[in-house]
Amino acid sequence: MTLISVEAIAFSYGRKPVLHDVSFTVKKGINLGLVGESGSGKSTILKLLLGLERPASGAIRFQGETLNLRDREFMRRYRRSVQAVFQDPYSSLDPRQTVEAIIAEPLRALKISGDHHAAIVQALADVGLPADAISRYPHEFSGGQRQRIALARAIVARPQLVLADEAVSALDLSTRIRIVELLKELSQAITILLVSHDLGVVAALCEEIIILEKGRIVEAGRTADILANPQHPYTRKLLASVPRMPA
């Protein structure tokens, strides 16, 4: 089932085009990796999907409906289904809010009814944090724990899709592997779209992959196929550049 379909979108900052004719679909239950280097346009695609910018042309459809930032009722439904996690767990959590207030934000903002406290405790449990974290502040946690808090905020409203922007890139290796494990676990119920420059992480988490270069999709398909048999020269170069462990 298609969750989101991106149809021939283009975008530019001023006169500088950053995306050309980009189309892809996000399917329910299939984690998708968006891979590219700086200038590839991957962050711009994310901004468009997050509803922070409007495409210059083309359309983004969510369950058949075109994304319309002005339609508040639609955006509320969209945001309820699509939440986000960001790269830097130090700047993505408000230092002045308790963990409870941070995780409660989507519930409150989207006017979701029900027992918020119970939902927050459940979300904390889902990301592997103790319930007593609820009254503490972000600075009392390590980078990995903060990213878990950010994940709890993303899943507390039980969205269908989580957009993860380099969500593990700022973490230490030992933490990174555990957060990727956690994301894998969560993705049994929630689809994840991971935007990353790190092929290893994408390979470990995503069934499908899109390779971007200078605002264009150069290759897309099943991750295993593309890694084993890259077609486009850029994909080959990218793969060859990844440092490998000595045999």
């Binding site: 290796l173 030992s174 990174r176 592997i177 790190d198 092929l199 290893g200 992480v201 390979a203 470990a204 295993a224 890694l227 084993a228 890259p230 080959r236 793969l239 060859a240 990844v242 490998r244 462990m245 000595p246």
Partner: peptide
């Protein structure tokens, strides 16, 4: 050190790095 790490911490690091490495498949 990477081939046969002795300390628990090194083992964990090497295993984590190897996990991402394995996910990439055989080097092309």
């Amino acid at each position: 050190v990477f081939g046969s790490p002795q300390h628990e911490y090194t083992k964990m690091l090497v295993n984590a790095a190897a996990a991402f490495d394995r996910a990439l498949g055989e080097p092309v």
